[in-house]
Design a protein around this nucleic acid. Structure first.
Lengths: 242, 242
DNA sequence: CGATGATTTGACGAGCCTCAAGGTACGTGG
DNA sequence: CCACGTACCTTGAGGCTCGTCAAATCATCG
């Protein structure tokens, strides 16, 4: 049974901007159902033109692109609240694939209704644009990491960011959280080899900065990590939810 | 004297989707003026909250991010038709800086009017989202290049893409175009050192694939470059103009 | 308890970076 | 007109980071 938008558990988290009753109703009009997929399943394929849009409600996933020769670049990690499939809706096809790392449940919207949605609810149209900008922002930061940081620095950056996202969603306890990815996923996100990623993670452990094993991430010294990664401190800000 | 939107020379280029008279009028309502800046000038600073939005009308520029330690990551190249400053308008601050590589003229819009614009002209709101998606698409591709391609491959990719953009704007003649950037700019875009960029460009020349000197780019073998870069062939498609 | 997939470690080499010096084009002032 | 400065491009030498190859360990699961 699909949960009604008014009962959406995600919306109440402090990370997300409050919606008034009308907005919730607008979302309810747009929503066509819920989808549950298993870990490992592919939700969207690069190049595909899916008839549906999604918002991740529960679970985590990956966005990635492939080179013809098989190399994979992870372009982002999917967390609850992420909006998925906008590119297919607007540009006509997905520019990356999306797959589930854990089992996930997603809110489903009808892609064909998007333009009518824009006409009917401009404040929601603004939200869609907002989310596209957030994605753009993250990709720029990732590019900065891959292009300019060393392996250890890039890993420090990635772990801090992932933890930050988890924390904003209330997924952490005493600096710990579940991080259900493989080292290969991080490696592909940062343009590193698996082996070098593994050795760099070991360095972070030796320096007592962060530990990540058995799917559990623990940051021992966030300030140290941020410093190592030469990150400025932009606090997590409220963002809207679709 | 600011040119009127109805006389906009950019809009007529085949790259851009046709607008009907009403849409042109909507843009005219939104436009507040024109700006001309010199080569080397900074248009927007990362972290700034500019009161203005821009569309590049003429000239070329760079979008980049800086690390505290001084490393620069070029996140994109600015060509005529690019929409600039959306992040500041929506997220509250720019997530990258923008500077002019040549002298530029830009169309100026009022950031505060953006939301009203969304309400009044949903088809234009849709266009803004479209452009944000295009940017996201490009950043994903850049990430793929920096993360997974070798230096020569990444350069091949970059030169093909830049040439493609030039061609779509009618800036090329027999595979040649002006490319008013420094090698350092390409290096910072691809996460390479200047020296290695220079040597890799030499290799592309030796292989008779591409020559870029004195601000002039010449692609001798586009298929060869695409092949080297392992690029699929997505054709350039029409896109809207703001 | 074997099979499969993920993590870990070691050895070695390659790609890319840094340092350094020289070259070219172009503008400026004596 | 030439000396000089500046900005950018080019080339060489040497070293470090990171990738590849290989194998061992570990965890999970049927």
């Amino acid at each position: 049974m699909a949960t009604a938008c008014k009962d959406c558990p995600l919306r109440k988290k402090p990370l997300f901007k409050q919606m008034d009753g009308r907005e919730v109703e607008h979302m309810q009009n747009f929503k066509v159902g819920e989808l549950r997929i298993e870990a490992g399943a592919t939700l969207l394929m690069e190049g595909s033109n899916s008839p549906q849009l999604f918002t991740a409600l529960r679970g985590m996933g990956l966005r990635y692109k492939l080179l013809e020769s098989g190399e994979r670049q992870v372009v982002n990690f999917v967390f609850p609240g992420d909006f998925i499939g906008l590119q297919a809706a607007v540009l006509g096809e997905m520019t990356h694939s999306v797959e589930a790392s854990t089992s996930m449940t997603l809110c489903v919207f009808d892609r064909k209704a998007l333009f009518d949605f824009f006409k009917a609810y401009p404040e929601r149209a603004y939200v869609v644009t907002w989310l596209a900008c957030v994605e753009e922002h993250f990709l720029g930061e990732a590019l900065l990491s891959v292009g300019q940081r060393t392996a250890v620095e890039a890993l420090a950056w990635a772990l801090v960011r992932l933890h930050q996202r988890g924390e904003a969603l209330g997924l952490t306890r005493n600096g710990e959280m579940n991080l259900p990815y493989r080292q290969q996923d991080l490696a592909d996100a940062l343009g590193l080899s698996l082996v070098h990623t593994n050795k760099s993670l070991a360095k972070l452990r030796e320096k007592r900065l962060a530990t990540w094993r058995n799917g559990r991430l623990e940051l021992h010294d966030i300030a140290g990590l941020r410093n190592l990664a030469k990150m400025g401190d932009e606090p997590v800000t409220e963002r809207p939810l679709m």
